[in-house]
Each structure stands twice: as structure tokens, then as C-alpha cells.
Design a protein around this nucleic acid. Structure first.
Lengths: 110, 110
DNA sequence: TTCTATACCTTGCAATACAAGGTATTTTCT
DNA sequence: AGAAAATACCTTGTATTGCAAGGTATAGAA
């Protein structure tokens, strides 16, 4: 099993969290994710993902001049994006709890 | 983002962990996962997954009579399956660490 | 001018969770 | 005995998403 599969759906939430903290552009994200411990991501992953999130109105983008190279497309969170991030946090929390419960072989308590 | 996507690749590890603890049959798994807090899984998810894991020699299966209904196909872990489970635990640990780091906006320490 | 780094995007593929539908066995109910 | 219900397995087709590979364009440096 590759880490690739384990990231499905989780990367979305991580990127929302990063954008919330500070607006970023796509190219920057591929590097930024590394600073959080992830192996570096393909641009073929990042750009389509950002465009999808914009289509879903979770983020907005504005072009700004770069110091070196073409203009950067900076992304920031919409209100809907913040709500989505909060939803993700809850889901991630449940997932963590459940997986850890399975791995340590404990049954759910109520 | 649905939980469905967040499970990709993670379900494998969970099922390996459950099988290691005690041999189980497919139909039973769909119920067992609920007791760990997961919403119940489709059989269309479980059966292909078990067959794939058998093909990869992570598990073996034996048919046993049921008290009610057709014979059950019980799965148990191979040595390779145990190794895979250990790998999964490490990967899951890293994933947890990294995602939580992003969500709390901490940079990796070295 | 040419090279390099920056920055964006597209296409096609692989992996996997799931809905929907199908088959067979065993017990229970009428 | 026949019908119904629960148990148990499997298959097909679809949607989602991460990624490799390849493409385009801008700006500064050599």
C-alpha cells in the first residue's frame, strides 16, 4: 500500500488549513507541504486540486506579480472554505479515533 | 469531501489489524467495522478488497460450515500480511503526525 | 542571445470505495 | 412440502483523486 492512496481526500483538508493560515500560491504549496513532513507533491496533484476547490467556491484567487518569473495565483479561503475545513477537522478526528481503536483492538465505548 | 475518500488505503490496514487479532469472514467484517466506530461498509467494498489481499498473499482463506446459511470463508494473516500491517502502522503514524502538524500549524522539528 | 528558475496548466492512467444487482445455502414459518 | 427470510458470497460499472509526463510562458542572469 502506497502513501498515495492514504492521502486521498486528506490532502484537501491539509491545503485548506494551510491557506487559512496565510494565502499561498500553487507552486509554493508543493514546497510548503514538505515543511510539514510530507514528501513533496507533484504539481499535477496540486493545480487540479486548487482549481477544483475554486470551482466548489472553497477558495478564491488573485494574480500578483512575482519577483522572479510569471505572475502568481494566490489563493485564500472563502467562508464556505472555512466551514469545509471545520468539517474536515471533525471527520479527521473521527477517522483517527476509529483507526487507532482498530489498531489497538479496543471496542467503541458509549 | 466524503469520508469515503479519506478511507482510501486506510481500510486495508484496518482489516489486516482485525484479521490479525482473530480470523474473520467477509460478511462478519462489514459488521465488525461498525463496532470500531466506522459507519457500515458495503460488501462491494469488502469482498474485492479481501480477494485482492489474498492475491497479494497477505491473507489466506479456508471455508468452514456455518450454523445458518452457506459456508463462510475465513481469512487469516500470512507472514507477509503481518509485515504489511507493521508497515501500515508506521505510515499511519507519519500521516497522523503530519496532518496534525498542518492542522495546528507547526513546522517540522528536526 | 541563451540558459535557468519560476510558475502555471493539461492529458491520461491507476487505485479503490461503493451502489446495484446476482447466486446459493440453511433455517423457519405456514 | 413450499415459501420466505436471513446468511453469505461475488461481479459489474462508476466516481474520485493522486500522479507522471509533458507543455507553455515570464523574468532575471550568464
Amino acid at each position: 500500500m502506497s502513501t498515495t492512496q492514504m492521502l486521498k481526500g486528506i490532502l484537501d483538508g491539509c491545503i485548506l488549513a494551510i491557506i487559512k493560515n496565510k494565502e499561498v500560491y500553487g507552486y509554493e504549496l508543493t514546497e510548503k507541504l514538505e515543511s510539514y513532513g510530507f514528501h513533496s507533491f507533484s504539481e499535477g496533484t496540486i493545480y487540479p486540486l486548487l482549481m477544483r476547490m475554486q470551482k466548489e467556491e472553497l477558495v478564491t484567487s488573485t494574480l500578483k506579480k512575482s519577483t522572479a518569473g510569471p505572475r502568481r495565483k494566490y489563493y485564500s479561503l472563502t467562508k464556505k472554505g472555512e466551514e469545509e475545513l471545520n468539517k474536515f477537522k471533525l471527520q479527521w478526528d473521527h477517522l483517527q479515533t476509529n483507526v487507532n481503536r482498530v489498531l489497538s483492538n479496543e471496542v467503541e465505548e458509549n
